[in-house]
Computed example of a mutant assay.
Amino acid sequence: MPGWLDRARQWARTIKRDVIAVWLAARDVRTPMAVRILAAAIAAYALSPIDLIPDFIPVLGYLDDLLIVPLGIVAVVKLIPAPLFAEFRAAASQIAAKPVSRLGMLAVILIWLLAVWLTLMLATDWV
């Protein structure tokens, strides 16, 4: 296998582990509240089957996943003390099944429904 393919697979495994670590950080009381909110938003977006830009849109559909999730993870990692995040990474490595963020999916659906409702209200001058 080419070296770049091995590196890409390793990067994907690292991102998957870090998404789970961010999810754990969002649920841990030792994480500062503002960082917990950011971590919850990043984890919900990464684990949600609903994307900001749908994947069927050429280039942009995958570009948002390649930018938003890694940049969000970097932000959360920088805001959490290194020893604490190392603990989250170790715990994430032990989790066999990928967690499903039903709450995150619900939040994204509610935001989209609110956006559609507001658009309809503004378009029909009901407000």
Rank of each mutant, 00 (worst) to 15 (best):
M1A: 12
P2K: 06
W4Q: 08
D6A: 11
R7F: 07
R7P: 01
A8F: 14
A8I: 09
R9D: 10
R9M: 13
Q10L: 15
Q10Y: 10
W11Q: 13
A12D: 10
A12T: 08
A12M: 07
R13V: 07
R13Y: 08
T14A: 11
T14Y: 01
I15K: 04
K16F: 01
R17N: 08
R17Q: 15
D18P: 03
V19K: 03
A21Q: 04
W23V: 00
A25K: 03
A25H: 03
A26N: 04
R27F: 01
D28H: 09
D28P: 03
V29F: 02
R30D: 08
T31P: 07
P32A: 11
M33N: 05
M33Y: 12
M33F: 14
A34W: 07
A39Y: 05
A39T: 04
A39G: 05
A40D: 12
A41K: 05
A41C: 04
I42D: 01
I42G: 00
I42P: 02
A44K: 03
A44Q: 08
A44F: 04
Y45M: 05
A46M: 03
A46I: 06
P49D: 12
P49G: 15
P49Q: 07
D51L: 01
D51C: 00
L52A: 14
P54H: 03
D55C: 00
D55R: 14
P58F: 10
V59A: 10
V59P: 05
L60M: 15
G61P: 06
L63Y: 13
D64E: 11
D65T: 00
L66T: 00
V69Q: 01
L71K: 03
L71S: 05
V74P: 00
A75S: 02
V76P: 05
V77Y: 07
V77C: 01
V77T: 02
K78F: 12
I80P: 07
A82D: 06
P83E: 09
L84Q: 14
F85L: 08
A86S: 14
A86V: 04
A86R: 15
A86T: 10
E87C: 01
F88S: 11
F88T: 11
R89N: 04
A92P: 13
A92W: 12
S93R: 15
Q94M: 11
I95T: 11
I95A: 06
I95E: 09
A96N: 05
A96F: 10
A97F: 13
A97W: 09
K98E: 14
P99R: 03
V100Q: 13
V100M: 11
V100L: 14
S101G: 10
L103S: 11
G104I: 04
G104D: 02
L106A: 15
A107L: 15
I109W: 07
L110M: 15
L110P: 03
I111Q: 02
W112Q: 08
L114S: 12
A115M: 13
A115W: 12
L118P: 00
T119Y: 13
L120F: 09
L120I: 12
M121C: 10
W126T: 09
